[in-house]
């Protein structure tokens, strides 16, 4: 069910659960945030594609490179790297966006107990960061082959201060915008 949602994202941990189709919307949100100021992006699913971000920025400003330069991107390819990345982030004014956070935690080569422990450490870090600036996290449910990792998604959901489920809109050719700080918007999201 689609609901219109007014979502002022201010200094809190917001989690958006959706499939891969959520990513283009997250990238648009990243572009919007980069227009306003510095942005820290942590990518857990190797899904940050700079080209759509640049395209979106180009529609909004002539200073594309300046805006792109305000995005600080770090990619994590293992859950251990994800923990380290988040631990090393200093809380500041800039919003933090964690893309596809759980993807590295779905790795079957890491024991479930270990993944759980590492995720809990990540959540501690995300909560710490969210006290200073908005933190927007996106996550996907596990694929069928690693369905036993579903509890990790539940742990993240429980930690969220604001929880949203991205709803597929089959008729929409353009992705709907994501909530941004201080912005009231109508979303294809269902509040959880």
């Amino acid at each position: 069910m689609n609901t219109s949602l007014s979502f002022p994202l201010s200094s809190r941990l917001a989690v958006i659960i959706g499939d891969r189709a959520t990513i283009p919307r997250m990238l648009e949100a990243a572009a919007e945030l980069a227009l306003a100021g510095p942005l820290q992006v942590v990518d857990g699913g190797n899904c940050f594609n700079a080209y759509p971000v640049a395209r979106h920025l180009r529609r909004r400003t002539a200073a594309v490179h300046a805006a792109l330069g305000r995005i600080r991107l770090a990619r994590a390819f293992t859950c251990y790297q994800m923990v380290t990345l988040l631990q090393n982030l200093q809380p500041g004014d800039q919003p933090v966006m964690a893309l596809d956070l759980l993807q590295t935690f779905y790795d079957e080569n890491v024991r479930m107990a270990e993944s759980r422990r590492l995720l809990e450490r990540c959540i501690v870090q995300l909560t710490r960061l969210s006290r200073a600036a908005p933190v927007l996290v996106s996550a996907r449910p596990p694929a069928e082959v690693c369905a036993t990792r579903l509890p990790l998604l539940h742990i993240l959901q429980e930690a969220a201060e604001a929880l949203y489920f991205a709803v597929e809109s089959s008729s929409a050719a353009q992705p709907a915008p994501l909530p941004l700080p201080g912005m009231e918007t109508s979303l294809g999201l269902t509040e959880g």
Partner: peptide, 10 residues
């Protein structure tokens, strides 16, 4: 075009 590495390849 690859060598140019333009953020807006179009």
């Amino acid at each position: 075009a690859a060598y140019a590495s333009n953020a807006l390849p179009m």
